[in-house]
């Protein structure tokens, strides 16, 4: 990501000395960002593989766990993040059209969406912490699970679900925060009117990162909130 800010002297953009042209620098930077996103996929992927293994090992566990989370909160957050992805894409769109005002506005909306996401997350977390639904050995809530069909069953390793819940949403939440700060940084540069049709690499790079954060959530939502 920081690769995207190679050289920006003053108002006009100069590409770094080891590139042939601004285009060359742009395509190289973007390739670097894609490689970086690839590492993100594998890092989150570790958690998803863990999820898959335990889902197979304990078919009931995640179903039981999902009765403790409110799918409406998850769905709301999904819509919020999808909206933020749209505004992020539009932020790049307007930067490409050299419309700094609209581009800046779109980035601010994106940051606001990120903030709304975190607030909703905060309510979810505090509710669970209140009930003692903590990860692993810190868990001190009830192991009795009331399923959708009304049956009550004791699920001994329920804490494991919350380990996954907190690890996955926690790591994702950290990425949301990082993404928000990066977008803020891009916004500062948009305000200085640094971008136009031929140079908008930082917004593009930050945008790619933000979309990846959205991508991860697209999978987290059904896996954690809607397991059947």
């Amino acid at each position: 990501m920081s690769s995207a800010d190679q050289h920006a002297h003053g108002t006009g953009h100069h590409y770094a000395h080891h590139f042939e042209s601004a285009e060359h620098e742009y395509s190289s930077s973007k390739q670097g960002i894609w490689v970086f996103l690839c590492t993100e996929i594998l890092m989150f992927g570790g958690l998803f593989v863990g999820y898959a293994v335990f889902h197979h090992m304990y078919p009931l566990l995640f179903k039981a766990g999902s009765t403790f989370v409110d799918w409406r909160m998850g769905a709301a957050n999904t819509v919020v993040l999808l909206t933020s992805s749209l505004t992020m894409a539009l932020g790049i769109y307007y930067a490409q059209k050299r419309d700094a005002a609209k581009s800046g506005l779109m980035l601010l909306i994106t940051i606001a969406c990120g903030a709304i996401f975190m607030v909703i997350k905060y309510f979810e977390y505090s509710h669970k912490i209140h009930l003692g639904l903590l990860p692993g050995s810190w868990f001190h809530g009830s192991l009795d699970v009331t399923f959708a069909d009304g049956t009550v069953q004791r699920v001994e390793n329920l804490p494991l679900y919350f380990s996954f819940y907190y690890m996955m949403t926690g790591l994702h939440g950290i990425h949301v925060l990082i993404g928000m700060s990066l977008i803020f940084w891009a916004w500062l540069r948009v305000r200085k009117n640094e971008f136009g049709p031929h140079y908008y690499t930082p917004v593009e790079g930050v945008g790619l990162f933000w979309h990846l954060v959205d991508l991860v959530w697209i999978y987290l939502f059904p896996l954690l909130y809607l397991v059947s």
Partner: peptide, 22 residues
């Protein structure tokens, strides 16, 4: 491969601190 190491040692640290139980 290295990102998987990152998540592995992260989980290991969490295992030590929070006892997440993976």
């Amino acid at each position: 491969a290295t990102p998987v190491l990152a998540i592995t040692v992260l989980l290991l640290a969490m295992e030590n601190i929070f006892g997440i139980g993976f």
